[in-house]
Simulated assay, not measured.
Amino acid sequence: MSSLYLHIPFCSSKCPYCDFFSQVGTQRQLDRYVELLKRNIEIVSQGLAQPASLNTIFFGGGTPSLLSAPQFEDILNLIDRSFKIQSTAEITVEANPGTLNLSKLKGFRHAGVNRLSLGIQSLNDRSLRLLGRIHSASLARESIVAARTAGFDNINLDLMFALPEQNMASLEVDISALLEFEPEHVSLYGLSFEEGTEYSARQQSGQLKPCGEELYADQYMFLHHHLLKEGYEHYEISNFAKANRRCNHNQVYWQRKNCLAIGAGAHGFLDQEWGTRWHIPADMCLYEKLLLQGNDPVEILERYDHSGAMKEYVYLALRTSNGVNLQEFHGRFRVDFHQVFAEAIHKMKRYLRSSNDHCCLDIEGWLIYDHLISHFL
């Protein structure tokens, strides 16, 4: 087992576009949840056939930075005792401006956190208000500076694009302002209107109009070229990194490797036979009930057969600039990629780039990834 994900489903407020499992909670609820996480860690570690050694740990949410530095230290010490954290492990915490200060960030570093992912989303106050964020642009800037001062030398900054009423000029100002801080990693997300969110309801009522497809494509391509020019590698559909600064944890997902998961709403994967995906239900009451009974709260989502495993491998690999490793594909599945998916490859050959050992999508293919990947599924 190489990686561990921990879900912290609490936020200061619920963003109107967010469909992740999260809720606004009290400090008492958050403290109680930390105790449940620790119980979850103990139960999972006791159930492993052999001790795990962790290369990556990722605290996602929600807003994990609502936890205190001592709570992170407590959790990480327990993880080390239960699984063993490798000395070179990447330990990431997602954080939001408005929940941070210099003292807290120094505490995170002292606890062992060595990678910070900041949900900046925009450095334009009007856009931040539209997105329902709790922070201002100036507070976002202060948080980045504080993170550097605290000793973080591996920082990801999230930026959203395709916002209502956003034009190319305002987007250029936003990305230029973001890059002034020289982040090691940038994640870009086009705004989507997910079912069940406030934004979806506002779209259906005519209060909000999504960005048009042509403008979306123009903005995505602009960001791609701009970040390449600034020395970033576009290594996954939504992710850019400076040299040797890819997110190791996320690559575990895209490479279909083992990942344990802790916390209500968390998802994990076990790479045995053709693979098993499982989750912990996004139900706080059930989560607490099962843990207090001494039970592992996981539920199996899917056990893959040979065909399903091949399809998911391709689905994930084509999200990345590495694409499908042809030798690895043959080693895993004992079949030839080009023979198994000959029809799909023919249909989308315009967007595929092949060599002797890899097959990947070009940037135009990434733009219509959801449509193209259906040929493989």
Rank of each mutant, 00 (worst) to 15 (best):
K289Q: 11
F181P: 03
I57C: 04
D362P: 00
L260R: 06
F72C: 00
E90K: 01
H279V: 03
Y216K: 12
I41M: 08
H7M: 11
S205M: 11
L4V: 07
V34N: 09
L326F: 08
G60A: 10
D31P: 01
S68Q: 12
L131N: 06
D271R: 15
F161H: 15
V145A: 12
V34M: 08
R115N: 03
S12M: 05
R141D: 06
M1A: 13
A342I: 00
Q23S: 15
R109T: 02
D271H: 12
P70N: 11
S68R: 08
G61A: 09
V145I: 15
V34F: 03
S12D: 12
G263Q: 07
N322T: 13
L6M: 14
D174T: 08
E165W: 01
L361F: 11
L105N: 01
N295K: 13
L316S: 05
E180I: 04
D153Q: 10
Q207T: 08
F269V: 08
D80T: 02
I300W: 07
R245V: 00
A201W: 07
L292T: 05
E90P: 00
S138N: 13
G62A: 09
E364T: 07
I345T: 01
A140E: 06
F83Y: 14
Q121E: 13
I155F: 05
S205Q: 13
A201Q: 14
K229F: 07
E299F: 03
Q121I: 09
G265T: 07
Y17S: 12
G275I: 09
S138W: 02
H330Q: 14
N167R: 02
P51C: 05
S22R: 06
G98S: 06
G61C: 08
T88M: 00
H346I: 01
A89W: 00
H135K: 09
F72Q: 00
T276Y: 06
H279D: 06
A69P: 04
M160P: 07
N124K: 09
N322R: 14
S205L: 13
I85V: 12
A309H: 12
N356P: 02
L36M: 10
Q251R: 15
H110N: 11
E328Q: 14
L163N: 06
H375D: 06
Y5W: 08
V324T: 03
I155C: 04
Q166K: 06
H279C: 07
Q27S: 14
I134N: 10
K311H: 05
V93T: 11
W366V: 01
F337Y: 14
L131S: 10
K311T: 05
A217T: 11
I79R: 01
R319E: 03
A49G: 15
D296G: 02
A69V: 05
H346M: 04
L6G: 00
I85M: 02
N322F: 09
T276V: 15
W278K: 02
